[in-house]
Design a protein around this nucleic acid. Structure first.
Lengths: 161, 161
DNA sequence: AGACATGAAACTTGGAATGTTGCATAACCG
DNA sequence: CGGTTATGCAACATTCCAAGTTTCATGTCT
């Protein structure tokens, strides 16, 4: 549905790097997100410029995290991928002499700006680590389905103790 | 900047119709918003289906408002033009087996849904008439600049009386 | 009948993210 | 050194969708 997947893709990659592969080449990363290495380099380049990841050339090179996930906010990632337009709708960009259009555009602009500010504030509050934690909860749930032991057993143990 | 101008354009047209041209052909409307009649018919068709405007064929035909602007909310117009995606960013549409991606997408989806709900709630509260009133304020200001009389003079008159 | 309007289908255009190819540059390794 | 493996970068192709365009059918007034 959305046109721009960069932020989502980079979050995905950062968590994989933290939890699974400390050092990854663009080739490896491209397989995580079903694309190709050049696209990965384009996106990761922005993260590197922001000090979120580091790159090493040559044999044994690749990408590494430059900061812990606790110190990377969703907003940092959003901005690192170029802070693309959040909205798909909106008023015409080039201004007009028509006062009706000006009034419409002013109101629409105000509403969209407010929504944008709220969303970015939200992004400023969420650490990538929080998403990684969500992932591990999901992971634990899946284990539970496959081997329905630990949670119920532990709860019972605690209750009984 | 935005990709989808339909809502903005239709608001523009509705106010023009209410304040200036009770009956307008697609040809005339297309000139208001610098496009062509077919694009106008496509967009206005949605408004007609929602009972916002009415169309008449043949000689002397064209488009008219079917309700006063006080009874048309921004949200009605948004939905009438097809409720296009609000956001340009977001998670990948087709689901994945990767739990990391699921966790990322879930959080991103939640944030965007909340932002969408807020924005649509905003659109539900604003009447097209409110924008028309804004337009008339702008219009009055412009008169004031051209002929700096009425407002200051009236205020003085009132104060002095 | 003729002029004028909407209605609808099919096709073209334009812009942005994504995808692809090719080559330059840098670092390790034998 | 020369070969291998990696990033960096530029140029081009692909895809998607709103917008724009062309064409014809249908309906309505004079």
């Amino acid at each position: 549905m959305p046109r721009d997947l960069r932020m989502s893709r980079m979050l995905h990659v950062l968590i994989h790097m933290d939890r699974h592969v400390r050092l990854a080449t663009s080739e490896q990363i491209s397989k995580m997100i079903s694309t190709n290495p050049v696209v990965v380099r384009r996106m990761m380049g922005g993260l590197r410029d922001r000090g979120i990841v580091a790159s090493e050339k040559g044999h044994g090179g690749g990408w590494t995290l430059a900061r812990p996930l606790t110190e990377i906010m969703l907003r940092d990632v959003y901005e690192a991928v170029g802070a693309p337009p959040l909205f798909n709708i909106g008023p015409n960009a080039d201004p007009s002499d028509c006062l009706v259009e000006k009034a419409v555009d002013a109101q629409l602009d105000a509403s969209l700006r407010e929504a944008e500010a709220r969303l970015l504030a939200q992004f400023s509050k969420i650490r990538v680590e929080d998403l990684a934690a969500d992932y591990e909860s999901l992971s634990a749930e899946e284990q539970e389905i496959a081997h329905p032991i630990s949670v119920a057993a532990n709860m019972h143990t605690r209750d009984g103790a």
